[in-house]
Simulated scan of single mutants.
Amino acid sequence: MALQVQSKVKSSTWAAILSTAVAHYVFHDAVPFWAQLVIDTGVTGAVTFAAGYYTKHKAQFEWLEKVLRETGVSDFVVDEVLNSASLPKKVNSK
């Protein structure tokens, strides 16, 4: 069963790719090498972290219910797991 890549991972990856490209082409040979390293790593790290932090998290627990039910776990246990405080309430729809 293939799982989807979370939106946080996608946005962080694109932010890292784009910020690295921009920093490399903007500051390439314009500043000393040590400053370019600091700018490249600092800007890329900050932009990547910010993209992941501010992207809305989308919980996808449908796979968990499917796996639990297919492995023969009792309905009571499945319902308790899916109704726990850490999971969204909308998941437990039969």
Rank of each mutant, 00 (worst) to 15 (best):
D79S: 06
F76M: 05
V38N: 09
A46F: 05
L87K: 08
L18Y: 11
T13K: 08
W63E: 12
F61I: 08
M1L: 13
K8G: 12
A50N: 06
S7D: 06
S19D: 01
T71I: 10
G72C: 13
V26P: 06
S12D: 10
Q4W: 02
R69I: 03
H24A: 13
L18A: 06
K56D: 07
H57L: 10
S86M: 15
N92C: 02
A30R: 15
N92D: 05
Y25K: 08
S7K: 12
H28Q: 05
A16D: 10
A15N: 12
Q36T: 02
V47L: 14
F49D: 06
Q60V: 00
I17P: 02
D40N: 14
K58F: 02
G42V: 06
A30T: 14
V78Y: 02
A23W: 11
V9L: 07
F61T: 06
G52D: 11
A50W: 08
K8F: 07
V31A: 02
T41C: 06
Q4P: 07
T20G: 15
L64N: 01
T41K: 07
L18V: 15
V22G: 05
V73P: 02
Q36E: 07
H24Y: 09
D75L: 09
D40R: 04
S11C: 10
D79A: 06
T44K: 02
V31G: 01
F49T: 12
G52S: 08
E65N: 04
V9G: 05
S93D: 13
G52E: 00
V9R: 10
A50G: 08
L87T: 00
D75C: 08
I39S: 00
D75Y: 04
S7N: 03
Y25E: 12
Q6N: 15
V47R: 08
A51V: 10
F33P: 03
A35K: 04
A2T: 15
K66Q: 04
F27Y: 00
D40C: 11
D40Y: 11
T44W: 00
A23D: 01
K94I: 11
Q60C: 05
F27P: 00
K94E: 15
F49I: 02
Q60F: 03
L37M: 13
H28D: 09
L64V: 02
H57W: 10
I39C: 05
S74I: 08
K66D: 07
